[in-house]
Computed example of a mutant assay.
Amino acid sequence: MRLFRKLLLPFVPIYYLITWMRNWMYDIGILKSTHFDVPTIVVGNLNVGGTGKSPMVEYVVRLLKNNAQLAILSRGYKRETHGFILATENDSAKTLGDEPFQFYNKFSEVLVAVDADRVNGISRLLKGEIKPEVVVLDDAYQHRKVHGGFNILLTAYGNLYSNDILLPTGDLREPRSGAKRADIIVVTKCPQGLSKNKREEIIKSLHVNPNQQLVFSAIIYSNKVTNALDEEFSLFELGQKEVVLITGIANPKPLVEFLKEQKITIKQHLNYPDHHHFSETEISSLKELNKEYVLLTTEKDFVRLKNEIASLFYLEIKTEFLGRDAKIFDDSLKKYVESTKKRP
């Protein structure tokens, strides 16, 4: 696969020209971005997948949900439906997509909707019976038809956008210059003991503008696993059992490394593509494995499988900022929301 992508290198300049021209036309107003009076927070990345968007969206929701009526609007990637859908108890990962369904299950007080057309999605939300006071756009950094009021750009430690090239050979969705639209850049998935020298090295690499802020965060794993029956194992208890790990995410390597650090015996790792839809045959095979082993998966995969395998366990993750970066991030976001809500 890597060799094939290298063979596509001659197409990178073509992709660069197309994406650069598109951004330029938005920048000078040839292509129009719709502004909404409601505070609009965009969470996204330049690289394809694997930067921790879902835990970042959840962090934003936890930060703001007690002071405003929030809505999360997502595209609903790989769902089996089309158009605008406002999540209800009748929905599932199939109708919403796995990540929006995960958000809906975790935050009952938050509106969760899906629509590939974000302009239409926000408009429909604002016409609803319960009107959002803040809209969080999941994975919408390149969706420039909506003017993002506050743009949060994520880049993963060890896979910085500054070290990548454009599709189809690299993983960048648009040129690195697109980072200039960000209000705050978050380096995600950092080690907890990130050194000052490494921070400075990353800061130089990303060429952050004076009007932007740069902060660092880590992924924190829960100390327990849970299933749909509300049964729990501590990680210590899980270490006494043989586990089959099931993943359908962009980069399962950090999870595998964490479990090994916790002395979890991974008897088998079934590694599927990101957002994988499990077939009946695959589910039957998993049920057979479940007779002998504990089945463990990610929270995103869990929402697709929980109605099929009730005894399937998942490990929750959260975003945690390093040191005083939490205050920098929180204060910046709250300041934007409050100043936007006060506008006439």
Rank of each mutant, 00 (worst) to 15 (best):
M1K: 12
L7K: 07
F11Y: 11
R22P: 02
N23D: 14
W24C: 03
Y26D: 07
D37A: 14
V43S: 05
L46M: 08
G49P: 08
P55Y: 02
V57N: 05
V57P: 01
V57R: 06
Q69I: 14
R75I: 04
R79L: 08
A87S: 14
A87I: 10
T95I: 12
L96P: 10
Q102H: 02
Y104W: 07
S108L: 02
S108T: 03
N120T: 13
G121P: 09
K127I: 00
E129G: 00
K145N: 01
V146D: 00
H147Q: 04
H147R: 07
F150P: 01
N151E: 13
I152L: 05
Y157N: 07
G158W: 06
L160Y: 15
Y161R: 09
S162R: 05
S162W: 01
I165W: 00
L166C: 01
L167W: 05
T169E: 11
G170C: 12
R176M: 10
R181C: 02
I184E: 09
V186W: 11
K196D: 13
E201V: 06
I203K: 15
I220F: 06
I220A: 04
S222Q: 13
F236K: 12
F236D: 00
V243M: 01
A250Q: 08
L255P: 09
L259V: 11
K267T: 12
Q268I: 01
H269A: 09
D274I: 04
T281Y: 10
I283Q: 07
S285G: 07
S285K: 13
K287E: 12
K291G: 10
V294Y: 10
E299A: 14
K300E: 01
K306M: 04
L315V: 01
G323H: 15
R324D: 15
K327P: 03
F329M: 15
K335S: 13
S339D: 13
T340C: 13
K341C: 10
